[in-house]
Nucleic acid binder design. Structure first.
Length: 567
RNA sequence: UGGGGCGUCGACAAACGGCAAGUCAGGAGAUUUUGGAUCUCCCAUGUGGAGGUUCGAAUCCUCCCGCCCCAGCCA
């Protein structure tokens, strides 16, 4: 849909274009999206997905979905399933099945044995504490492990014992043998295999040693003959090891050149939210949200349930660009993208969120009629529909003010406004609750000559209100969402993002009135409630008890004016 | 005080020695049966700072300042 809109290039695509020019990869481009199945995908992943699959598309290459499942303690099948679902929902094709790092465990093991044989790796029997101690600091070099000079034979024997389950967790580890004095701490003999007597979600109890990301990732890339391995900035320090490892393995004939190349870009930060699996899992576990797919969550499944479309998300990812600078994108851009999409495609409908009863005193009690309404002014092919009108109606509470401020154009005592697609009405009398003084209902008169919304005498009104027939409309629950956090960068104030959780991020209104027939809409269908915003039928919704999520409000000029007035 | 990155508009982000793109936000107007949408116009004499090279510098050089990442048997 928006896929053909021309996108501007970025430094990664430019770099790939240079490789295309030089022919180093034989004009081949092969990327990968490598999530660890330890949580649900979020908008930050969407950026990466769009980048990786987008590059493959732009260069006529391919992109693998590969699970980086090298840590059985944190990974679960549920996450695998949700990730596959999210990638597919976004509309990307990774073939019939995803790939798994765990499928390469045999190869990785053999490659590790090669490294040992070639003198590039050794089994260290230091404890984790000792290793940390000897790693040195940022400003001082580390110390060689006392086990660093074990013979290849001994290393091989020990490593096989590790594999065979002869040693407990933490007792030893396989390390790359590089340089304990390197300024880059990642090169101070990084651990590449550790013992974990834990069942893996795919390989079960086959293994009790598992490769570290540092080691596994370059190997996975090389096995799949990835050309460009795109990752986020924090792995930049890791690149020298990435290259070192692959060079060693290529020397040993385990891989053929050209070797994949790692390129790093800045991860997405979004204002008023968090994009960190670690923190998102906390929100879920601590019950601050209903689950990973809570419509307030920045997860793909969350914003999907909220009512965002794949097109809007992909468009957002195009607009934010790709660079190496740390930045925080304003949430407003995301909202702009979904409004833009839904404006084009969402059918309009009239629903009243906070009903205020209006009685048309000069309209016959027993009568009703049907009026023509346009389904989508942006799309004539969407056609029209009939909307029932009668003596008793509901309008939005906020569309009436007993004492209207300047520039408030809507209904007020003695004032005439238009009911969309219906009639001009004038407010004649305000009925209030005797005790509370609260406005209970409005007595209005209508002008029969204005049927459809135009006055034959050419007189104008300054406002058009949405409305629904009291008799014909249906009840619905509507869930209004605000940002999950009150601050631009949650946690900046106190150091704990939970201190900035927005207590008002969810408001449930149970007695809304929706246009007749709307209750039958299928879950995930989206509508514009005229003047109120875009809404999506929630997964919980049933025809008997319809539930709508507010995706996003419409741009609200009046709110802006009113806010300025208060200042 | 080690190593690796990054500083261009309120927010993103181009510009690759030759007139500081574009988008969002904001402002003004037109139009409108959604205070929506749409359309038009405005919005960085200046690119973290100071020097230097050059006919010409966001771009090259030097120094300085600021921010981010790295001391998991996480990824």
């Amino acid at each position: 849909m928006t896929d053909e809109t021309p996108r501007q290039s970025d430094f990664i695509r430019e770099s790939i274009a240079v490789d295309q020019e030089s022919g180093i990869y034989g004009k081949r481009v092969h990327t990968r999206f490598p999530p660890e199945p330890n949580g649900y995908l979020h908008l930050g992943h969407a950026k990466s997905i769009c980048l990786n699959f987008g590059i493959a598309r732009d260069f006529g290459g391919r992109c693998n979905l590969r699970f980086d499942d090298t840590n059985p303690e944190k990974e679960e099948q549920e996450y695998v399933d949700s990730i596959i679902d999210s990638v597919r929902w976004l509309g990307f094709d990774f073939g019939p099945a995803p790939l798994y790092a765990s499928d390469y465990f045999d190869f990785m093991y053999k490659a590790a044995e090669y490294l040992i044989t070639a003198g590039h790796a050794y089994v260290d029997s230091q404890s984790a504490d000792e290793m940390r101690e000897n790693r040195g600091t940022l400003t001082s070099p580390g110390k060689n492990s006392p086990f660093r000079e074990r013979s290849a034979e001994e290393n091989l024997r020990l490593f096989r014992e590790m594999r065979d389950g002869r040693h407990p967790d933490g007792s030893m580890v396989l390390r790359a043998k590089i340089d304990m004095a390197s300024g880059n701490i990642n090169l101070r003999d990084p651990a590449i295999y550790r013992i974990k007597h834990a069942d893996h979600h795919r390989t079960g109890s086959t293994w009790c040693i598992y490769p570290m990301y540092t080691y596994a990732h370059p190997v996975e890339d090389a096995i799949e003959q990835i050309t460009h391995s795109i990752c986020t900035l924090e792995f930049e320090d890791q690149r020298p090891f990435y290259d070192w490892l692959l060079e060693r393995l290529a020397e040993g004939g385990l891989f053929k050149r050209p070797l994949p190349r790692q390129i790093e870009f800045a991860r997405l930060n979004l204002s008023h939210t968090i994009l960190s699996k670690r923190k998102l899992i906390q929100l879920v576990q601590d019950g601050h949200v209903s689950g990973w797919d809570d419509p307030r969550m920045p997860t793909i499944s969350g914003i999907r349930r909220r009512g965002y479309t794949p097109e809007a998300i992909k468009n957002f990812c195009e607009r934010i660009g790709v660079a190496k600078r740390d930045s925080t994108v304003g949430l407003g851009l995301l909202e702009y993208c979904i409004r833009e999409d839904l404006n084009r495609r969402a059918p309009r409908v009239m629903s009243v969120l906070r009903p205020l009863k209006v009685v048309i005193t000069n309209y016959p009690e027993a009568e009703d009629e049907e009026l023509d309404a346009i389904n989508n002014p942006e799309d004539p092919s969407a056609g029209t529909r009939k909307v029932p009108f009668c003596r008793e109606l509901y309008i939005e509470q906020e569309d009436f003010r007993e004492d209207p401020p300047k520039q408030f154009f809507r209904l007020a005592p003695g004032r005439e406004v238009r009911l969309r697609y219906a009639y001009f009405i004038t407010c004649e009398k305000v009925i209030k609750d005797e005790k509370t003084g609260e406005v209970r209902e409005l007595l209005c008169s209508y002008d029969p000559k204005t049927r459809g919304g135009d006055a034959p005498d050419g007189r104008k009104v300054k406002a058009t209100l949405h409305w629904v027939s009291a008799r014909h409309s249906q009840r619905a629950e509507v869930r209004l969402y605000d940002t999950l956090f009150t601050e631009t960068n949650p946690g900046d104030r106190t150091g704990d993002f939970r201190d900035d959780i927005n207590p008002k991020s969810l408001e449930v209104i149970k007695d809304c009135r929706i246009e007749p027939g709307l209750s039958a809409a299928a879950p995930s269908s989206r509508f514009q409630f005229e003047r109120m915003g875009y809404f999506c039928v929630d997964a919980d919704s049933t025809p008997e008890k319809p539930v709508f999520n507010r995706v996003v409000i419409l741009k609200d000029t009046w709110a802006k004016v009113e806010k300025a007035q208060k200042k």
